[in-house]
Amino acid sequence: MRKVLKTAIQDDPQISNLLERMPDDVSQSFSEKQLTCLKVALASRQWGQHKIDLRGTFKWFHYRYYFVVLAGKNRRELSAREQELSQWIKALIVGGFILFSWALGLLSLYLLKSALGINLFGDFSLGIWDWFKALFA
């Protein structure tokens, strides 16, 4: 067995990990230039830093599944279709928030009216006040 001198690129953790997973005859056939190109290709595939980086695995029946949730600032250029979709989603979120706030405000006013004993319509009730009182009884 002949002893092969390790080059500086072979000491790199990424490259040494890659070479360890190959048969010896294949791993020793790479030139230093080829290993450098492999390192550049591997480095370009790594994910950047994200505000939210959640990774994990779980077992379900006889299989193991993995999940990755990444979130952060979008640095890509959006296509026209993506920009239009983004505007629609923003409008739906804002509209939903306004609708929810409006309904919560009306509910609060109705509960306040009922707590003060103000009856706008003679013998009519929505039953919300009775339900609310039953929650705390």
Rank of each mutant, 00 (worst) to 15 (best):
R2H: 08
R2G: 01
L5Y: 02
L5P: 06
A8L: 12
Q14R: 11
Q14H: 13
E20F: 09
M22Q: 13
S27I: 02
Q28H: 09
S31Y: 00
Q34R: 09
C37Y: 15
L38S: 01
V40S: 03
A43Y: 12
A43V: 15
Q46Y: 02
Q46C: 14
G48N: 12
G48S: 15
K51D: 13
K51V: 00
G56C: 07
G56F: 07
T57M: 06
T57W: 10
T57F: 12
T57A: 10
K59I: 15
W60E: 15
F61S: 08
H62T: 12
Y63S: 13
Y66H: 02
Y66L: 03
F67K: 06
F67Y: 14
V69N: 07
N74E: 10
N74R: 10
N74W: 06
R75K: 14
E77K: 11
E82W: 05
E84H: 11
E84T: 08
S86T: 12
S86C: 04
I89Q: 12
I89R: 13
K90R: 08
L92Y: 04
L92R: 03
G95K: 00
G95E: 00
F97N: 02
F97D: 11
F97Q: 13
F97M: 08
I98V: 06
I98S: 02
L99M: 04
F100Q: 00
F100E: 00
W102S: 00
A103E: 07
L106S: 05
L107H: 05
Y110P: 03
S114R: 15
G117P: 04
G117H: 03
L120V: 12
L126D: 02
L126M: 03
W131N: 09
A134K: 12
L135Y: 05
A137L: 06
A137G: 06
